[in-house]
């Protein structure tokens, strides 16, 4: 196992360096990019904290839409398998299966949940303002 600080604790130090020292001391494009970089660090910290739980929820949602499958044994396999299942979902929407009816309502609810999860990581303020 690795020593403290944890990954999150290390990233927090980088985030504070950007926010408290670099952003205030820069101007123009550098200041802007430093601010963007601080936001990227925040996104990474949130993803590390939330990803596993979010992917499991997405997997269960796809079970409802596409039929149940055994849950993959690792996060890495889960990521690859989710991609395949989302390609199947996208293909069915493209074929018109979600144009109307009960399945459309299920698809909309599922996709909304998944996009909500993505925004919890990338931009929680977007959800709060909306």
């Amino acid at each position: 196992m690795h020593d403290r600080p944890t990954v999150d604790e290390l990233l927090r130090a980088v985030e504070l360096l950007l926010d408290e020292q670099l952003v205030p001391s820069l101007d123009g494009a550098r200041r802007y990019n430093a601010r963007v970089a601080a936001n990227v660090v925040r996104t990474v910290r949130r993803e590390l904290a939330l990803e596993e739980k979010q992917l499991e929820a997405e997997w269960r949602g796809l079970d409802v839409l596409l039929g149940p499958l055994p849950r993959p044994s690792s996060l890495e396999i889960m990521r690859a398998a989710l991609r395949t299942r989302n390609e199947a979902l996208a293909g069915r929407i493209r074929a018109g299966d979600a144009d109307a009816g009960d399945w459309r309502a299920l698809v909309l609810a599922h996709v909304r949940d998944v996009v909500h999860a993505k925004l919890e990581v990338s931009d929680p303020a977007w959800l709060a303002e909306g």
């Binding site: 989302n86 996208a90 979600a98 698809v107 909309l108 996709v111 998944v114």
Partner: peptide, 10 residues
């Protein structure tokens, strides 16, 4: 894949 975009195109 972006199911939301597929829905929007339809």
């Amino acid at each position: 894949p972006h199911p939301a975009f597929e829905l929007a195109f339809r």
